[in-house]
Amino acid sequence: MTHLAQPAEAPASLAAAVAAGDRGAVARALNLIDDHRAAAHDRAAELLAALPEDRLLGAGHLVGLTGPPGVGKSTLTAALIRHWRGEGLTVGVLAVDPSSPFSGGAVLGDRLRMITPATDPGVFVRSLADRGTFGGVSAEAWPMSQILLAAFDRVLIETVGVGQREVDIADLADTIVFVAQPYSGDAIQVIKAGILEVPDILVVNKADLGAGARRTLSDLAAAIRPAEEPGGWTLQALAASAAIGTGVAETAGTIERHRAWLADSGHLVERRQTAPLRWLLARLVERFGRHGIGRLGGDGAVAERLAEAPTGAFALLGEYNRLLSQH
């Protein structure tokens, strides 16, 4: 029964199969990205570099969904999947769940809300454990999102149910949707101003549960300041019931408008172009501290190196890893 490793698949042909939407290839590509053995890392870097650049920089949509535990992120994801599928768009999802700090194990439970009685080849859901990374997404989320971006029309990343601050998702998504809890009963929950700075869209979910959602929404709307630059994006707030399906089309519409705004204003390409650097710096800080980056000559030096090889953040991380691990 022993099953020896099959001959390694050529990264370039794997990339082509991913871009063609081959589900098996997408799965294998995600596995390869996840594989932290040195040889695999190099092949993953080649794979990422071989993905069609026009897709990664200009096509599709990377949507990040964040918010407190149990607020309905997975349910809303499921509702958005249905909406997009109705429009004929394919959807890839990365769903991040917390790892146990003691065992390292995890229960990957988000996909339960996303599966439908009939399997749909136009939907692909990969769960991910945060593996101790703070900030709601794991280190693998960005490169994995690139695989999905190359294969599917819409990519949704559901973060761990985070507090209100640590939202690393902002580093990698085009559009950030924050899902908020409606006020419950008479408990006055003040939504901290801080969270209003991160998202592009704010959805007060569970609107079916009564007046709380409307009150929460109007309080939030009052706290929103219009964009400062002319033609800028003003945070949009709306109410939805992911469970019943109300407000979902509006949410999808707002997400689409934000994408159009990003594309027209040039922010889409800019966000996509700068995401690799943000990801790379975050990984370096995580592994080697600010001190490590100092040894590399600081953020600026890293940025310059990356500019020379725009698709190579993943490869560069491998290189820096080797460099900094040598004492």
Binding site: S99, S100, S103, G105, A106, V107, L108, S127
Partner: peptide
């Protein structure tokens, strides 16, 4: 999970 697996169920 307690033993360290990432579990899908």
């Amino acid at each position: 999970r307690d033993a360290g697996f990432e579990v899908v169920y």
